[in-house]
Amino acid sequence: MNFWLVLTVNSVTFGGLLFLLASGFSLIFGLMRIPNLTHGSLFMLGAYIGGSIVIGLFGFKMNFWLAAVLAALTVAALGALIERFLLRQLPGDQLAQVLVTLGISFMAADFCLMVWGGDPMSVTTPEGLGGFARIGGAVFPLYRLAIIAIAVVVAIALWLLLDRTRLGAMIRAGVDDPDMARVVGIRVSQLFTIVFALGAGLAAFAGIIGGPILSVYPGLDQDMLPLALLVVIIGGAGSLLGSFVGSILVGFIYNFGQALLPELAYFVLFLPMLLVLLLRPQGLFGRHVP
């Protein structure tokens, strides 16, 4: 009984982390029509930068949460630069843009290896959240509950941003019909930079928040990127609800798979993807087939 409960909490936690990662990925995909293959690297970069600040970088040491925000902002700025100076060179050529993001992801991975070395870096759980909460007869790690809360807050904030603000309306217009959005005077390419930076920042934030659970190691990027891809394939590109449902689903399948069939955990992920592709190629909440 307890085993299942703990597994469920872990799945929701992991789903929450995935949501932070995949919502940006999905927005970028929906708007720019490209899968951003640097997304895993941005996640890892955020984790490394944040982790270094927590440990202390050049005598510069910060509280976990401030470090997380700072890492997210740094990586968001990096994302804006990538969009502005590399992807912007290839307007409308999605294939070339994907290949550029792929190239950057290798450079970023090797850069991390060069700077932080091959040994995993452990990030300590923020103060006050190292304990456990007793609910009924079960015991839950506080930090995991905190991650779920953060994911829910971010989800609501993103929903408000997309649904209630002018910027959100412009982004939605760009996702639905970029040409028509341009015709009515929305500067879609400016939105590209904003959304790319937002997605990069969210990915980095997810990286550092996930640090205490996943730890940070070379190859983390290649572990996370396929999961983000799966979330978007399952949930549908450009849909916030889709990435939310997809993340929780993938979180559950991945964690249960790892606990019950550890050797085939990765392969079990294949099944929901198969079903979605066969029955609903645009994804559960997507509007069009990519």
């Binding site: 029509r33 490209i34 899968p35 293959l37 999605q94 294939l95 994907v98 290649q222 990127l225 396929p226 891809l229 799966l230 978007v232 394939i233 550890p262 050797e263 085939l264 955990a265 990765y266 392969f267 992920l269 294949f270 993807m273 592709l277 190629p281 087939v289 990519p290």
Partner: peptide
């Protein structure tokens, strides 16, 4: 089921699944 970007994404995901299988199916 799709061409273009969708094809890239799905083949990437499938390739990674094979990689995961090679890595974990000890």
């Amino acid at each position: 089921r799709s061409s273009g970007i969708g094809f890239i994404m799905i083949t990437l995901a499938l390739g990674q699944i094979l990689w995961g299988l090679a890595y974990r199916w000890i």
